[in-house]
């Protein structure tokens, strides 16, 4: 479904991604793992068109999307839930969700999709008229995911949804991600919470210093010696 092929990206003179290759198949929940600064967010921003690779290509549903303008990426069915949530803080919860469904097809089903999002996150329904900036961290994350779902995406890219959340909320967010995947939405999950992510994903890629160093089935990587030592501390 999504194919990232030999992509290299630089910020000015500094190269941060080196020949990154990975693939996400329809219906999968693929995790992209790595430490701070490994280049995970850079990959998502490159797929979203905010950054341009200086070599390599990106394909989505068989079409090359490497060089299309950033705002057109959403039209293809890719929803990006960015790191740090990036809500519209002075807009209400409801308006934030409406912003998620600007494109014609999503707009047609705006009401129903919102009902679905409210059923996933009942707290959002309760607070729908409150400004997004006044929500707690967990609620903001739910709103960010909900806003992504409003686009009725084929692929949902989640950038560190567990960042800065209390442990009990982390579990809740991951449960919801699994639930979303079960409903048939393909998920590309970027995480630092490696244990959790490996347990729930179909496949995972490990990124180190801008290169893919390992990939495999989630549960297998859990038993990988390198992963154990470097990331799980066992």
């Amino acid at each position: 479904m999504l194919k990232v092929d030999n992509v290299s990206v630089s910020y000015g003179d500094m190269q941060v991604l080196w020949d990154v290759t990975f693939e996400v198949m329809e219906g999968e929940l693929v995790a992209l793992l790595g430490a701070n600064g490994a280049g995970k967010t850079t990959i998502l921003n490159t797929i979203s068109g905010l950054l341009r690779p200086h070599s390599g290509n990106i394909y989505f549903l068989g079409k090359e999307i490497t060089r299309i303008p950033a705002h057109r990426v959403a039209e293809l069915g890719i929803a990006h839930v960015p790191e740090g949530r990036r809500l519209f803080p002075e807009m209400s919860v409801k308006e934030n969700l409406e912003m998620g469904s600007l494109l014609p097809e999503a707009k047609k089903k705006r009401k129903e999709t919102m009902e679905w999002v409210f059923s996933l996150f009942p707290i959002l329904k309760e607070k729908q008229n409150q400004e997004a900036g006044t929500l707690s961290g967990g609620q903001q994350q739910m709103l960010a995911i909900g806003r992504g779902l409003m686009a009725l995406p084929k692929l949902l890219m989640l950038d560190e949804p567990s960042l800065g959340l209390a442990p009990v909320l982390v579990n809740q967010v991951f449960e919801i991600v699994k639930e979303i995947n079960r409903r048939g939405i393909t998920v590309l999950l970027v995480e630092q919470n490696i244990m959790h992510a490996l347990k729930m994903c179909t496949r995972a890629y490990v990124l180190e210093n801008g290169r893919v160093t390992l990939h495999g089935i989630g549960t297998e990587l859990l038993n990988n010696q390198h992963v154990k030592e470097a990331y799980l501390g066992i």
């Binding site: 979203s48 905010l50 950033a70 705002h71 057109r72 990426v73 959403a74 039209e75 929803a79 990006h80 960015p82 990036r86 809500l87 519209f88 803080p89 002075e90 807009m91 308006e95 409406e98 912003m99 998620g100 600007l102 494109l103 806003r147 686009a151």
Partner: peptide, 18 residues
């Protein structure tokens, strides 16, 4: 709403297809 969203967070607005 897209105008307000762009003012509040331009990149996030682009993620929404604006």
């Amino acid at each position: 709403r897209s105008i307000r969203a762009t003012a509040q967070d331009r990149d996030a607005a682009i993620y929404m297809g604006v």
